[in-house]
């Protein structure tokens, strides 16, 4: 395997594996938020804001993976 294909493979793996955890996490977050809204519809505003903040935290992990993938793809040049 030459370095270029290793780089491409690594990029795919990085974002693919890195997105699993945040995917599950965001699912759990939205699940909880929707249940709370269902139980207590008056608190919808604050629940939504907190949900978005939580989603941002969970998502940032995926974003780190994405950054790694992007660096692998565009920054490290496979010579």
């Amino acid at each position: 395997m030459d370095i270029n294909s290793a780089r491409l493979l690594a990029a795919g793996l990085a974002i693919g594996l890195g997105a699993i955890g945040p995917g599950v996490g965001i699912g759990l977050l939205v699940n909880g938020a929707l249940q709370s809204i269902g139980r207590n519809p008056e608190a919808q505003g604050s629940i939504q804001i907190n949900m978005f903040i939580g989603i941002a935290f969970a998502e940032s992990v995926a974003i780190y993976a994405l950054v790694v993938a992007l660096i692998l793809l565009f920054v490290i040049s496979g010579k």
Binding site: A56, E59, S60, I63, Y64, L66, V67, L70
Partner: peptide, 13 residues
């Protein structure tokens, strides 16, 4: 790191 890369990653992606 998380502030900057979250914004950058989302918009760049």
């Amino acid at each position: 790191l998380s502030f900057s890369f979250r914004l950058f990653g989302n918009i760049f992606a």
